[in-house]
Structure formats: structure tokens, C-alpha cells
């Protein structure tokens, strides 16, 4: 399979008084064609900034400091021209946000806003635009698509707006759909519908997904591979099955044990004592989880751990996997421990 997106050694910096704080540091992940990739982590771990950096939509005062983001193995999104980036946005990579209530312009009809994407990417025929919109609106499950086209955002419910966002995101058949907490703001009953819809339609359009959530249940339901993020870095990366069956990183173990039943969405991820350190509290040296880790060792505070390969395509950023340092570490639920 080919890579759609490869993020390599990414750091995202907050620039304050000419100083650079690495809010996101040494982040690596690769999304393949048609893959459903998840990023999970507590609030404040840098998931949203990572997703915004892909389309160069970072807020003022925050910028990519290091690393590269490759689209289709060739285009480095960190330094493409503004014009090329405009061509990629909404066309090759599109994005859905958490808040459907505020993600649409209140003063324009849905039709105007959806057709804009097509217009921005060169479609000129009104009839063609209309047909494409009608097709997508039927696919996202609107019984009366014509009526939806004519309405304004305030006339639609949160779930309907998120369907509009999905239609808008897929109308140019992008290679990658980034969805940042797409269901968090929705009623529980609607959440599953929206996830199913995203799954179904991205399969139909051969689109990869980067799904960002703080909810392990959402990951379990939707994704094939997952990266666990903590304080601005990926601490563990594995297939969803491996991650749930044999979590390797102490943080992941904490997360999993705090979610008793995977289907239980009401459980949040706060059962690990302490909080994600804020960017100002972060030190560049050492493991970022050290302040909350039950297994913390001397080396953890001095040197940032490498990304150890604990199994085939299962990586964990923790000194415990280093034979010299962590020889006593038990991989609790694991049966086929690699050396």
C-alpha cells in the first residue's frame, strides 16, 4: 500500500517572547491509502494542533518548527506555496471540525457553502455542481436534499450540520479526510450514525481517514491503526487490535484500565492521576510522562526515550523497552512478548 500522509519528526512551536516552546515534539506517523488512522489522547495533548498543521491552519503565534509532512510521498506540506496549499485544501485533504454549530457561516445558505468547495477547485458548471451536491446529500442520508440546500445553518440540527460538513469534505473526493473530534459535540444517539456514515463514505470514495478523538471507544469502532498522543508526542503506535490486546506504554495501560468497557462512551480518560503538562511546564529533556508514570526511573527524567519496536509494527516510546533499563518490566497482558 502507498503512503497518503507521512509526518516525520514534527515539532509545533508556540512562539512567546521570541522563545519557542515545543507544544508538539518529535511526532511521527504514517497514514496509508484507504487506511483509517486514529489519534487518541487526553485533552491538551496536541491532537488538534497536529491536525491543523497538516493544512497549515495553525492559529497565529503557533507554527511548525521542525520536521516534514509528506503528501503522496512527494509534496512537503510544511513548505508548499500558498497557492499549492489552497489547491490541496478541500480537494486532496479535507477537514471536519468538532463544533458543527459554529463551523458554518451563518449568513450563507448551505448550497452556497457547499458549492464554494467545488468553485474553489475549478468547477464552473452550475448544473454539475448541483448534481454533485445532490448525490452527496443523498449519500449522507438527507431525505429532502433540495430543502437542505436552500436552508441556512441555524435551521439545521447539530447532526444535520455535521452531515453537511461530511458532504462538503468528500465532494472533491479527497485522498485524506481529517476529522477532529467529529462526534464529541453531538448527542450520543447521533454519534454512532455519524461515525458509520464517515466509515461508509470514505470507503466508497477510497479516502483515508485521520480520526482524532479523546474517546477510545470511537477508535475501537472506527480505526485500523492508532497513535496514542501524550503531551505533544506519540507515545505508542500500533494496530487497534494490538493496542487493545497488548498495550505497551505505561500511559496507554493507564488509559485502557480507566475505560472498563470499550463501548462505554460516558467514561472519560481522566483516571490517571495528574494532568497533561501545559506547554510551559514541558521540559525538552526526558520522558514527558515522567511526572505521572508509576514506573519512572532515573533515565526517564534525563533522556527522551526512543520509539522502541515492541512487536511487528508496534512501537512504544518508553525506556522500559530498553533491555538494560527496563529488565524487570512486565508487559501485563501480553502472552507473546518479543525480546
Amino acid at each position: 500500500m502507498t503512503n497518503v500522509l507521512e509526518i516525520k519528526d514534527l515539532s509545533i512551536d508556540l512562539i512567546k517572547n521570541k522563545e519557542r516552546l515545543h507544544i508538539v515534539n518529535n511526532l511521527n506517523l504514517t497514514i496509508m491509502k484507504k487506511q483509517k488512522y486514529g489519534i487518541v489522547g487526553e485533552s491538551g495533548s496536541g491532537k488538534s494542533l497536529t491536525s491543523l498543521s497538516i493544512l497549515n491552519l495553525l492559529p497565529e503565534g503557533i507554527e511548525v518548527g521542525n520536521g516534514h509532512i509528506l503528501l503522496n510521498n512527494d509534496t512537503n506540506l510544511v513548505n508548499v506555496s500558498k497557492k499549492d496549499m489552497r489547491h490541496i485544501r478541500g480537494n486532496e485533504i479535507s477537514m471536519i471540525f468538532q463544533e458543527p454549530m459554529t463551523a458554518l457561516d451563518p449568513l450563507f445558505t448551505i448550497e452556497h457553502q457547499v458549492s464554494e468547495v467545488l468553485k474553489f477547485h475549478g468547477e464552473t458548471s452550475k448544473k454539475e455542481m448541483h448534481n454533485k451536491m445532490m448525490t452527496l446529500f443523498e449519500q449522507v442520508g438527507f431525505a429532502r436534499p433540495k430543502q437542505i440546500l436552500k436552508s441556512y445553518p441555524h435551521q439545521l440540527s447539530g447532526g444535520m450540520r455535521q452531515r453537511v460538513m461530511i458532504a462538503m469534505a468528500l465532494i472533491c473526493k479527497p485522498k485524506l479526510l481529517i476529522a477532529d473530534e467529529p462526534t464529541t459535540a453531538l448527542d450520543v444517539t447521533i454519534q454512532a450514525q455519524i461515525l458509520d456514515l464517515m466509515n461508509e463514505l470514505t470507503e466508497y470514495y477510497d479516502t483515508s481517514i485521520l480520526l482524532i478523538t479523546h474517546d477510545l471507544g470511537v477508535i475501537a469502532e472506527t480505526c485500523e491503526r492508532v497513535a496514542v498522543m501524550y503531551a505533544g508526542t506519540v507515545v505508542e503506535e500500533a494496530s487497534v487490535k494490538d493496542l487493545f490486546d497488548h498495550p505497551a506504554h505505561p500511559y496507554t495501560k493507564g488509559l485502557l484500565s480507566s475505560v472498563k468497557s470499550l463501548g462505554d462512551r460516558t467514561k472519560k480518560l481522566y483516571a490517571i492521576p495528574g494532568n497533561v503538562p501545559s506547554p510551559v511546564e514541558l521540559k525538552d529533556a526526558g520522558c514527558r510522562f515522567a511526572s505521572r508514570c508509576p514506573f519512572v526511573m532515573d533515565i526517564c527524567r534525563e533522556k527522551e526515550p526512543e520509539l522502541f519496536s515492541v512487536q511487528d509494527r508496534h512501537y512504544s516510546k518508553c525506556w522500559l523497552h530498553d533491555m538494560e533499563e527496563g529488565s524487570t518490566y512486565e508487559y501485563a497482558t501480553t502472552d507473546s512478548e518479543s525480546s
Partner: peptide, 22 residues
């Protein structure tokens, strides 16, 4: 600073469209 401006940018709008239309 509103969310919907980010959506419009994410759709690939030129800055001119972002400012003058929306």
C-alpha cells in the same frame, strides 16, 4: 477568529474570498 472562517480556509478559499465575502 471564528470557527467558520477556519472552515472556509480549509475548503481552499483565497484570502480575498475569506475577507470580502465572509
Amino acid at each position: 477568529m471564528q470557527d467558520f472562517i477556519r472552515t472556509i480556509r480549509a475548503k481552499g478559499a483565497k484570502e480575498r474570498v475569506v475577507i470580502f465575502q465572509h
